[in-house]
Design a binder for these strands. Structure first.
Lengths: 212, 212
DNA sequence: TCGGTGACGGTTTTGCAAACTCGTCACCAA
DNA sequence: TTGGTGACGAGTTTGCAAAACCGTCACCGA
């Protein structure tokens, strides 16, 4: 009858990576990790597996990464970074009205996130791992999305397309909040149905609130 | 190197409860379950524990509930029902403008949900259980919230406070989506900080989109 | 018929030792 | 100094038998 709480918050604060930043070996490790995590899953891949695949010892891998978790974060970071890039490309497409861009961001973040987490089925458990421990990745990603949103909203305000009275920071934060259900792995897992429709109607609602 | 997927969706569709609906024993079981789940947690409470506490056999308990899960759902349902009632009370307070009511609903759902899931610390793992299996409770709750939102928005449209052009259904669904991060147990767990502020700014954004 | 139970099969959880994994360190070679 | 490794301790997962739990059924008494 004891408590069932397992509070091991391995938050990984230091963040400064180990060893040389640009190094062939680092890329090799990341590539191997990417392949193995996708193929066998995160938990079933051991650091020794990666070492063997490259033809190194495990000890040497630790010259480049603090921990297995750090490798996982790097791989995840690349995936999320790719999403961020695609969103940024939409955000910075000055040819289109800001409202169109924002609408596209809603639909795209849902689509890309769903693909990332569930089409690549085996990557799914790295996500579970990253949630179970409390990796900083989620916060980082959220911050990046916030920044992208800010760019779009600012652009819309400058062209007079969006209202200018509400505080920019709060508005952008609020938009980011409404975006959460469309990229958060756990929410996505629980509700993949109608994703495209849901993103669209929320985008509509939000845009009504933004329009000048 | 096999898959790590455990697909046991115990969705519990039938829904029709067993035995007489209004019965002293049913209340007793629910009361005992409530106490035990809170005190010892859901997983560590056995049906035999409940039976012993009331002074019955386990077999008799199954005259009233299909399964332990059904008991858990009933207890959870009561808690969520209490939240729904409080939200409904706000929604139906005709003395105040609809925008005030909606704003209060945002803040209240966040506050009450956070209290339910985390102040009552031991109830926390019933939530984990209810997520791990895919109980219908979450959907039921979401549907109830949607209905409450619909009442407020309808009221606001009738008084001319809210715009009337957008489709009512879609708008209410969208609002419900934006509410999700403020009551979903897992999101709440991951981000309790600034809850009140976040609900407020999202409410502000949404209300700008609603105003006539 | 209503209120209630003991005993039982099939599945899940538990306990514990063996095997494995993570990450460090001292150390080697060019 | 840069590139690289074997060996090892602390902690974690695995395998499997024993115990516990869930849920059903036949049955009892008023």
């Amino acid at each position: 009858m004891n408590g069932s709480s397992d509070d091991q918050t391995s938050q990984s604060s230091p963040q400064r990576q180990r060893g040389p930043a640009e190094h062939e070996r680092r890329e090799q490790i990341l590539t191997a990790a990417n392949g193995h995590f996708r193929h066998y899953g995160y938990n079933k891949t051991t650091v020794a597996d990666l070492a063997k695949a490259i033809g190194l010892s495990t000890a040497y891998i630790y010259k480049f990464f603090d921990s297995k978790q750090a490798i996982g974060e790097a791989v995840c970071g690349q995936c999320l970074g790719s999403i961020q890039e695609q969103l940024a490309a939409i955000a910075d497409d000055d040819g289109k009205p800001a409202s169109d861009r924002l609408r596209r961001i809603y639909r795209t973040i849902g689509k890309l996130s769903a693909e990332l987490f569930f089409n690549d089925r085996k990557l799914h458990d790295i996500v579970l791992a990253s949630m179970a421990e409390k990796w900083r990745l989620v916060d980082t990603h959220e911050a990046a999305v916030l920044e992208i949103i800010r760019r779009v909203v600012s652009a819309g305000r400058e062209t007079g397309e969006f209202e200018r009275k509400s505080p920019l920071d709060e508005t952008c934060e609020a938009i980011t909040q409404t975006l959460l259900p469309f990229w958060h792995p756990i929410l996505l897992e629980q509700n993949l149905d109608d994703l495209d429709k849901r993103t669209t109607i929320v985008a509509n609602l939000v845009l009504r609130g933004l329009s000048a």
